[in-house]
């Protein structure tokens, strides 16, 4: 490289990081003025009574929508850029030949950091198993990946702070490790469609994380923010809208009566409601936020959220291509049991 062209590259690099820094400052400023702005606009300009039910609900809806959008944008961007250093192919290479136990722990951890969409669950499942990754270890990965994802972490951190976020991540990892280990111990290979084991991998797999420049990684971050927001905005609006209604009109006493930690069935009902409900963390967390403010205990809420994001009807239908119904039922049962246990544990200790 000549001196002139390296100077050009360096200048382009400085410009890129200056843009990133400017975007970070703009993000922080928007986040800081979000609350005061709506108070001023709705209270002083429009003249709404923010302590009334309707006024409070409107403010809640607008403030929460903007806050959640900002959190999602910021954290998805950062996580995508960091994750661009990882890939499913690298993860598989790391998991190849691992024994169960250590393998389950590693798989759950990698499930969190590997860029992965549950829409790719089927090819990933075949790819892992055909490459010799044990069934239980593969399951640990597939459970951890949707359960402990960047959207959930972003929103928990923003709405509840670091404590509940760490609890959630720890509990999610534990469920993924234990459930995967149990499935491995049960020796359920006969309930996997035989073609999975017969699949021969040919050629050298391409590593998509190879050869990316910083510009590529930042562009991937921006594209991912757009893709995720386009996918989740209906859930988000419904979630925040429901949250606003509950915020304004459902009295806290109602929840205290029906969903307090003293109610022994609370967690079971929450998981029972959460499993068939198909949403993602973005749709669920605004609700969780409001319910927590109304006095529903954290264990019940986290169990509800985990059941909703970890177990979904569309994903189980996809998995039917590679797993027989018996194994799908065991998978759903083991994960649901783990979530119920976590819910009761948190209600007991928090």
């Amino acid at each position: 490289m000549t001196a002139a062209s390296s100077a050009v590259t360096r200048r382009a690099g400085m410009r890129r990081w200056a843009l990133v820094a400017a975007a970070a400052v703009a993000w922080w400023a928007l986040y800081a003025v979000n609350g005061p702005f709506w108070d001023w606009l709705l209270g002083d300009v429009v003249g709404l009574d923010l302590d009334s039910r309707a006024g409070g609900a409107v403010r809640f809806f607008l403030y929460d929508s903007v806050k959640i959008l900002l959190l999602l944008t910021g954290i998805i961007f950062v996580v995508t850029v960091l994750r661009s250093f990882m890939s499913v192919e690298r993860t598989r290479a790391l998991l190849g030949g691992r024994r169960e136990g250590v393998g389950n722990v590693l798989a759950a951890g990698l499930g969190v950091v590997t860029p992965f969409c549950s829409c790719s669950a089927v090819p990933a499942f075949i790819g892992f198993v055909a490459a010799g990754v044990p069934l239980g270890v593969t399951m640990s990965f597939l459970i951890a990946s949707p359960l402990v994802n960047e959207v959930a972490i972003a929103l928990l951190l923003g709405l509840f702070g670091i404590g509940p976020t760490l609890l959630y991540v720890g509990a999610g990892l534990t469920i993924a490790i234990v459930a995967g280990w149990v499935i491995g111990r049960l020796r359920l290979e006969r309930y996997v469609e035989p073609f999975v084991f017969e699949t021969k991998l040919r050629g050298k797999p391409l590593d998509p994380a190879y050869g990316l420049t910083w510009d590529d990684r930042l562009r991937m971050g921006i594209e991912e923010v757009g893709a995720i927001l386009r996918k989740i905005w209906p859930y988000l609006l419904v979630g925040i809208g429901l949250g606003a209604v509950i915020h304004g009109w459902v009295p806290a006493e109602w929840f205290a009566q029906h969903a307090s930690a003293d109610n022994p069935l609370g967690v079971l009902v929450a998981v029972g409601l959460g499993v068939p409900l198909y949403s993602n963390a973005a749709g669920i967390l605004p609700l969780v936020d409001v319910l927590f403010a109304k006095g529903v205990p954290m264990g019940t809420l986290l169990a509800f959220m985990m059941a909703t994001v970890a177990l979904s009807l569309p994903e189980t239908i996809l998995l039917k291509r590679v797993l027989k119904p018996r194994l799908i039922a065991i998978f759903v049962g083991v994960v649901a049991l783990g979530i119920v246990a976590v819910g009761y544990l948190f209600n007991a200790i928090l």
Binding site: V88, E89, R92, F116, C117, S120, P123, A124, I126, G127, F128, A130, F195, V196, E198, T199, K200, L201, R202, G203, K204, P205, L206, P208
Partner: peptide, 10 residues
């Protein structure tokens, strides 16, 4: 099966 045989997982 055919997709996976190419070694791709996404």
């Amino acid at each position: 099966g055919e997709i996976a045989a190419y070694g791709i997982m996404r």
